[in-house]
Amino acid sequence: MNRIIEKKLLAQNIYLIKVEAPRIAASALPGQFLVVINDPKGERIPLTISDYDKQAGTVDMVIQQIGVSTRLLCSRNVGECYSSVLGPLGVPSDFVKMSDEELKGRRYLFVAGGVGTAPVYPQAKYLHEKGAMVDVIIGAKTKDLLIFEEAMSKVCTNLYVCTDDGSYGFGGLVTKKIEDLLANGKTYDQAVAIGPMIMMKFVTKTLQPSGIPLTVSLNTLMVDATGMCGACRVTVGGKTRFACVEGPEFDAYQVDFDEAMRRQGMYNAEKVTSHTHKCKIGRE
């Protein structure tokens, strides 16, 4: 259990890791996530599921090394085991409740940013297999940080790659690409944005005038990720919700992104790190 079956470097500091987790693979659906613990002294790290194989009994996750715990997770090799892999957690994407007839021909726009591209993949794949029309925008800072381009191209109708620095594909932010698509007469029944909180905030602003329903997947802080602690509290439609058990996906137009971004940085604040010497996000 929890054995690493495959490990692939996708881009600088970004790994795809496939683990043996038959129970999770059997019940996973698009939109759900895992909690992974490296060793008995490690943190509980929430990670979105980027693919699952019920037959092989494996789940894939994509991890970007941004702090001590993610670096530890990425330092493990094929054949080694994580001490815990829990899941699938959270409510699956809304569309898994829709019938095949409803999904056939339904037009989706996915906006993926950075490692947020990984959780978009199982959603696009699911919808593509059901005959939906799926357009995907992938945004990356630069060409070298682009992930999932080839895999994604196989599960969507149109793939638009954007790089912030113009080193590959469309030069500019994903929001600019969205504006272009809408200006060229593209219409969608549903949009989904997954990526950094700041990207989701601006995608929400960009799409709001269009009236296209937009779902976002919130990567908040979590400890247990089962509804027990409330570290993941977000304000949605003026109400406090727990992203771990009521999300992670919410109606983007109802989310208080500024609060969510502030809360996400809670344990990075100088007064916390100087006090605890524990959170080492962004520090070598």
């Binding site: 002294k41 490690g42 943190e43 509980r44 001590v68 715990s69 530890l72 400890v223 247990d224 809670m266 344990y267 007064k271 916390v272 790190t273 006090h275 605890t276 524990k278 959170c279």
Partner: peptide, 15 residues
């Protein structure tokens, strides 16, 4: 308690 944040060597932060 569960994550032993008070103990040196454990990764989980507490404030």
């Amino acid at each position: 308690n569960l994550m032993h944040a008070y103990e040196e060597g454990y990764e989980t932060p507490i404030y």
